[in-house]
Design a protein around this nucleic acid. Sequence first.
DNA 1: GTACATTTAATGTGTTTACATAAATTTGTC
DNA 2: GACAAATTTATGTAAACACATTAAATGTAC
Lengths: 155, 155
Amino acid sequence: MSIEQEVQQVKFKSEYQKASINLMYTVSSITHHHLQVLKKFGLTTPQFNILRILRGQYPKATTVNDLINRMIDKASNASRIVEKLRAKKLVERSVSSNDRRAVDVKITEAGLELLSKIDHIEDEFFFGTSSLTVDEAKMLNYLLDKGRETKIRTK
Amino acid sequence: MSIEQEVQQVKFKSEYQKASINLMYTVSSITHHHLQVLKKFGLTTPQFNILRILRGQYPKATTVNDLINRMIDKASNASRIVEKLRAKKLVERSVSSNDRRAVDVKITEAGLELLSKIDHIEDEFFFGTSSLTVDEAKMLNYLLDKGRETKIRTK
DNA sequence: GTACATTTAATGTGTTTACATAAATTTGTC
DNA sequence: GACAAATTTATGTAAACACATTAAATGTAC
């Protein structure tokens, strides 16, 4: 279904505006689907994202600050999300030995197990069921990377 | 900056997974930027989206249900967003004459004026400052529309 | 070492979200 | 018309968010 049909809007100001709205609409759909899948595992989207980052570093620990920098949605409150995960025993938290301000977060065995369960449906979970060919997905990645660059200095 | 650099992740499971994360990251950036711009006008993103839909219908009214169906982020709580807009006198609300369950929402003069102010910076607001050419933006729109289609029946 | 700025994480506050549910009206069936 | 089902909107609740502030540790200049 074209974006025109999806949002019931016939004309857009430009291809750029259309792309902007198209992007938001598409991500909103994906996110909504993700949420449904993750709920079965008792996770929210940001909780899942943090777990994935932690697994990427495993068995090394990751500081909260690292999490903030690497999260897809730059969470202003990573601490509280980590605390939720700790309450579920999916991560462990300990004051860093190098820097006593920092807090090391590490995924637990239970966390790894949970992620591996989700891995099995990851094809469905991510964009894997889309009608795009691999080349098209590559092109999409290229366009997104380029699109984030800006002609104008904004800051 | 490539998505690999942005999220500091070297390898992805597939181009699809990469595209998925790339999409979410890109939209998160755009949304964050939108929020900063809209805040100057005292609006949030969904409030702005609703106003734009209402302007598209003007001078006809739009029911809350229509809003829900047409919103980019299918808001479960359109009522409350409309109430916020009404409190700012940007929209008017009245029980529909055809169907007394339904509520007609209509943008006010003040609402239209506010939107026209935002129009002036819309290029910056939307994807207009991106490095993409028009053809690339078109390609992006094509890929997004196609990407939302799924090979597998999910529901 | 002292004083001051910076970094890192946690917390307080108000707003927004997702989801479930309620309440009112309309529609469909008999 | 009576009654059940469906539709439309509003609201209660817990979680998450944005943003500002706080507290502790580290870094830097002297």
